[in-house]
Nucleic acid binder design. Sequence first.
DNA 1: GTCTATAGACCGATAGAC
DNA 2: GTCTATCGGTCTATAGAC
Lengths: 195, 195
Amino acid sequence: MTDSQRTRAGGKQERLVRAASELLHENGVARTSLAKVAAAADVPLGNVYYYFKTKDELVQAVIAAHAEAIRAELAGLERQHPLPLDRLKAFARSLTRSGAHVSRYGCPHGTLCSELGKREDGPGAAAAALMGEYVDWAQDQFRLLGQQDARDLALTLVSVFQGASLLAHTFRDPDVMRGQAEQLERWLDMVGQPR
Amino acid sequence: MTDSQRTRAGGKQERLVRAASELLHENGVARTSLAKVAAAADVPLGNVYYYFKTKDELVQAVIAAHAEAIRAELAGLERQHPLPLDRLKAFARSLTRSGAHVSRYGCPHGTLCSELGKREDGPGAAAAALMGEYVDWAQDQFRLLGQQDARDLALTLVSVFQGASLLAHTFRDPDVMRGQAEQLERWLDMVGQPR
DNA sequence: GTCTATAGACCGATAGAC
DNA sequence: GTCTATCGGTCTATAGAC
């Protein structure tokens, strides 16, 4: 395959993943048909199956793209903040920024895990890796802070993040995210100071 | 309608709601067909429509049953514990008990809100009331404790509860719930003491 | 009130021309 | 590689006999 072919093929494949990512977030996996994804990506329906053998394979491509974006986001936090406590606080503050979109459609990663977690096949395990990225990263930061129970603290941080996203979504209220970001910062000040 | 007719009708209606409640929790709304509900309740498919005009109406009946169960659970906590702080701690501990079921299928209320929140019609608003029951009750308890920011504290409590349920479900690990129940109790000791 | 049979719409996936 | 047409299956909901 030449580079220009890869570019053209990647163009359509990328458009499909991008369109699917948006529609899965807005409507969920089960209520998103390949026909709607194809239309949104401006690709004929039958052509979707040239790039993805099944619907599940497209879903997993969306999850893989999310995982890559998460790793880039967390790497960015590490670059911008040398101190682990500042990184964790910046992570907490990121709740506020996405408030409008999350309050309408939920956290894109959390809603995927909630829906796919009920299934036992491939996509469920792939979605679990998304939460794993966040929890493992937070655990590393708490360990750098010298915390013995870094795992539990990391799980609490991500729990509040995901729980606040769910409540903001449920109540359609972005203020929930702003308020919980403040609660998280206060909590981090209490538990995150090195002893 | 006589009492005996209401009893017979209620018998089938009740079986349908109970079967639907279980299947919606295990498989989600979109992936649960009325045929499966009817089979699980031992009611012929066509007969379902005598009791519920649409699938959404059955879903809303399930949500109404959940809401009633939540009110009974919270009223029980108030009866067993005179002190608001003890009530909140008992609520936090209840995370541990449901660990096995929640880690397999998620919190029944949280997964409903996550899925139905993406929709704009009736069931979405009904599901939101489930979270409202928990948050309003917790807010009352924090207010009894003399807390000024009772609303934010209540949202944090329910956020950890829901976030821990999501992570336990995602990782299929009941220990997440036990650990976060302990974190919540510790947090309640820190913020919940009257000044 | 109860149940069978099926209409009507939609979906995932495939066949096969180009 | 690309696209059209369509198959086979499942779903919600209804029609109509009993």
